[in-house]
C-alpha cells in the first residue's frame, strides 16, 4: 500500500529509459531549435536541459574565521558527513538483522528458542530507535552545512538531482512510519497471520532503507564518475542516466555489505558492554549469546566484503585508470597499507574471539591444539598482506636504492601476492569457524574419516591453488593477472560453502559433550569484540577519506573544478588524525546511546520488581 503510494508519486520523476527516449524524441520534433549535447559517460546525445557548472573563485567559498584547520570548510563537512554516515549505516544495518533474525525465529520449531530470537530482534530495533533520530539530526546538520559552506556547489548538485532529493525526503516519511508500526506493533502482531504481516513490514522497512541509501550513493558516485551531463556539466534531460553512473552499483553493493559488518560490530560491542556490566550469570549468558550472534552476522558479511571492494576498485580502474593508480599506486597508496593493517586486525580479533569461544564448550580441548597452526598461517598471510610496495623517496634515496623499485625488495607487496594472502586469511578464519562449530560434539556418522579427509583435502587444494596463482601472477601481464582473482575467489568460496555443508552433514546425529555454556567466556574475548567494532569504524573513516580525496581538485570529476583555497590534498598524517578524531567522537556518542538504553531498562526493571513485591490483599481478586 505504502509502496504503491510511493511508486505513484515517484513515477513522474523516474521515467523509464524507453519513455524518456520517446519524450526527448517528441520534444525535439516539436522544437527543433533545442541544443543537443553529448553525455560524458554514456556518449549519447541529449537535449541541454540545465545550466553549466559555475566558474567559481576562492572568494565564492564562505568560511568561518576559525583557527586552522576549522577554517577549511571541507574539514567541517568531512566530520559531519562521517558522523551522519556512521549512524545512517547503523540504522540501515539493524533492520537487515531484524528481518533475518525474526524470520529465523518464525522458522524455528523449538518455541523457547523461537521466542529468544524474536526478543533479540525486538531489542535490536529498540537500540536503533535512538540512533535513528540521531541520524536525522546529523542529516539536517549536514544539509545546512552544505547550503551555508558550499552554496554554489550545492545549488548545482540539487538542480541536477532535484527529483531524487524530493523522493529521498518522501522515503523518510515512509521509512519512519514503517519503523514505528514495526516497533510499536511488535507485541500486538505476535501470532498467526499478523506475525507474518509483521515480518513483511520488516522486509518493507529494508526496501525503503536500501532505496534511501542508493539514492544518496548516487550523489557521491556522480561526483566520482559523472554521467547524464555534458562536458560543461549541463543536464541532458534524463535523470535515469545521472542515477546510473559508472560507480553507483559497485558502491551500493560494497556499502550494503559494509553496513552489515559495521552494524554487527556495533551490536556486538553493545553486547560486550552489557556482558561486562552484567550483575549475574543469567544476564552474562544472554549477552554472551547476543554478542556471538552479532559477531556471526558481522563476520558472515566480512567474508564477501573484500570481493565487493575488489570489484569496486576494478570499476574505478575501468572508469579512469588514473584514478585507480592515484588510489593504489600513487598519492593515496600508503593509506591502503593502513587499510591492510586494519583488515588484518579484523581477522585476528575474529579468530581470537572464536578461539576464546571454545571455552564455552566441554570437549573443545581436542581442537585447541590446532589453534597455533591457524594463528601461524594467518600471521604469515598478514605480513604479506601489509607489505608496502610504493615508496615516497628523495632523489638521493632513489639513487641509493637503484631506481623506484629495489631489484629484490621491489618484488614484494604487489597485488598478486596480497590476493593470495587475503584469501589465505579468509580460509583460516573459515577453518576456525568449522572447528568452533564442532567443539561440543562427538561425530557419530560412519563416514567420519572420509568426511575429515575430504575437508582436509579441500582446504589443502584451495590453499595450494591460491598460493600457486599468487606466484604465477608474477610472470604474466597485469591485465591477465587481474583475471586470476576469479579462480582464487572460487577456491575460497568453495571452502566456505562446501566446507560448511560437509561439516553440518557430519554433525548430524552427533553426541553432545554438553550444552554450550553461554556466559562462560573470558573477559578478554569481549574486548576482542570491541576491537572488531573499533577497527571497523576506523576502516570506514579511512576508506571514506580515500574515496572522496581521489577526486583531487575536482568537485565533480573532470566536470566541476574545486577552486577553494583548500583544494590541495592533506598529508596522510593530518588526514589520519581527523579520521581518528571522528572515530573517538562516534564512540563517545555510541556509549551515550548505550547509557541511555541502560537508564530506561533500569527503570523498567525497578518497576517490575516493585510490582512483584506489592502485597496482595486478602480476598482480593488478584
Amino acid at each position: 500500500m505504502v509502496t504503491m503510494l510511493i511508486m505513484s508519486l515517484a513515477m513522474p520523476f523516474f521515467l523509464t529509459p524507453v519513455m524518456a527516449q520517446e519524450a526527448t524524441k517528441a520534444a525535439t520534433e516539436a522544437a527543433p531549435k533545442v541544443e543537443m549535447a553529448k553525455d560524458v559517460y554514456f556518449k549519447t546525445e541529449g537535449p541541454v536541459s540545465g545550466n553549466p557548472v559555475p566558474e567559481l573563485k576562492a572568494a565564492d567559498y564562505p568560511s568561518y574565521n576559525l583557527p586552522y584547520p576549522l577554517s577549511e570548510n571541507r574539514i567541517l563537512i568531512w566530520s559531519i558527513a562521517q558522523q551522519h554516515l556512521y549512524f545512517g549505516s547503523f540504522v540501515l544495518a539493524v533492520p537487515i538483522f531484524c528481518m533475518i533474525i525474526e524470520l529465523v525465529g518464525l522458522l524455528t520449531k523449538d518455541p523457547v528458542m523461537a521466542k529468544k530470537y524474536d526478543d533479540l530482534a525486538h531489542l535490536l530495533v529498540k537500540i536503533s530507535l535512538t540512533a535513528y533520530s540521531v541520524t536525522a539530526i546529523l542529516g539536517g546538520l549536514l544539509l545546512f552545512s552544505f547550503i551555508t559552506l558550499y552554496p554554489d556547489f550545492f545549488k548545482y548538485i540539487s538542480s541536477l538531482f532535484r527529483p531524487v532529493m524530493h523522493i529521498y525526503a518522501l522515503l523518510f516519511l515512509a521509512e519512519s512510519g514503517t519503523l514505528y508500526i514495526y516497533y510499536y506493533g511488535w507485541d500486538r502482531m505476535a501470532h498467526g497471520f499478523a506475525k507474518w504481516m509483521h515480518a513483511c513490514l520488516g522486509v518493507l522497512l529494508n526496501v525503503f532503507g536500501s532505496v534511501l541509501m542508493m539514492l544518496a550513493n548516487s550523489w557521491a558516485s556522480f561526483m566520482m564518475s559523472p554521467a547524464g551531463v555534458d562536458e560543461q556539466g549541463r543536464f541532458l534531460g534524463n535523470i535515469w542516466n545521472v542515477l546510473h553512473n559508472a560507480l553507483w552499483n559497485p558502491l551500493n553493493v560494497h556499502r550494503i555489505i559494509g553496513n552489515m559488518v559495521f552494524g554487527g560490530g556495533i551490536v556486538a560491542a553493545y553486547a560486550a558492554y552489557k556482558f561486562l556490566a552484567a550483575k549475574n550469570m543469567e544476564e552474562k549468558a544472554y549477552y554472551d549469546w547476543m554478542g556471538y550472534i552479532a559477531m556471526f552476522m558481522a563476520v558472515g558479511s566480512l567474508i564477501p566484503l573484500p570481493f565487493a571492494g575488489y570489484w569496486l576498485m576494478r570499476e574505478v580502474y575501468g572508469f579512469r585508470q588514473q584514478m585507480g593508480i592515484t588510489l593504489m599506486g600513487g598519492l593515496l597508496a600508503w593509506l591502503f597499507i593502513i587499510q591492510a593493517v586494519l583488515i588484518g586486525a579484523l581477522f585476528f580479533s575474529t579468530n581470537y574471539y572464536l578461539f576464546n569461544g571454545m571455552e564455552r564448550m566441554r570437549g573443545a580441548e581436542k581442537y585447541q591444539k590446532y589453534i597455533k597452526y591457524i594463528l601461524f598461517l594467518t600471521t604469515a598471510a598478514f605480513i604479506v598482506w601489509l607489505t608496502p610496495h610504493t615508496l615516497v623517496m628523495r632523489p638521493a634515496e632513489l639513487k641509493a636504492i637503484g631506481g623506484q623499485q629495489h631489484p629484490i625488495i621491489g618484488n614484494f607487496g604487489v597485488m598478486s601476492a596480497k590476493n593470495g594472502a587475503v584469501n589465505t586469511m579468509i580460509m583460516t578464519t573459515i577453518i576456525s569457524f568449522l572447528l568452533y562449530q564442532r567443539s561440543n560434539k562427538i561425530i557419530t556418522v560412519k563416514w567420519e574419516a572420509w568426511g575429515n579427509a575430504a575437508l582436509v583435502a579441500m582446504f589443502a587444494v584451495a590453499l595450494v591453488n591460491n598460493w600457486w596463482l599468487a606466484i604465477y601472477g608474477y610472470f604474466i601481464p597485469a591485465n591477465v593477472r587481474v583475471g586470476l582473482s576469479v579462480p582464487q575467489v572460487m577456491g575460497t568460496l568453495t571452502t566456505l560453502f562446501v566446507g560448511s555443508a560437509i561439516n553440518i552433514a557430519m554433525m548430524k546425529g552427533s553426541k553432545l559433550t554438553g550444552p554450550i555454556e553461554w556466559g562462560k567466556i573470558s573477559v578478554r574475548s569481549q574486548y576482542a569484540l570491541f576491537a572488531l567494532a573499533v577497527s571497523f569504524t576506523w576502516l570506514m573513516a579511512l576508506m571514506g577519506y580515500i574515496r572522496s580525496s581521489v577526486r583531487l581538485f575536482w568537485h565533480v570529476m573532470e566536470v566541476f573544478r574545486d577552486t577553494s583555497p583548500w583544494a590541495f590534498t592533506h598529508t596522510i598524517g593530518f588526514a589520519a588524525n581527523v579520521m581518528s578524531m571522528n572515530v573517538m567522537a562516534f564512540w563517545l556518542f555510541v556509549l551515550f546511546v548505550f547509557w541511555l538504553g541502560e537508564l530506561t531498562s533500569k527503570h523498567a526493571v525497578a518497576e517490575a520488581r516493585k510490582e512483584a513485591a506489592r502485597p496482595v490483599m486478602a480476598g482480593g481478586s488478584e
Partner: peptide, 26 residues
C-alpha cells in the same frame, strides 16, 4: 483452498519478497 488459507502468512511473505526483488530490478 484450505491449504492456501492455512499458509496465507508465508505466501504473503514470499510475494512481498518477490515484489521487492522486482522493484530493485530500479
Amino acid at each position: 483452498m484450505d491449504k492456501i488459507r492455512q499458509n496465507a502468512g508465508p505466501i504473503l511473505y514470499i510475494i512481498v519478497c518477490i515484489v521487492s526483488i522486482w522493484f530493485f530490478y530500479f
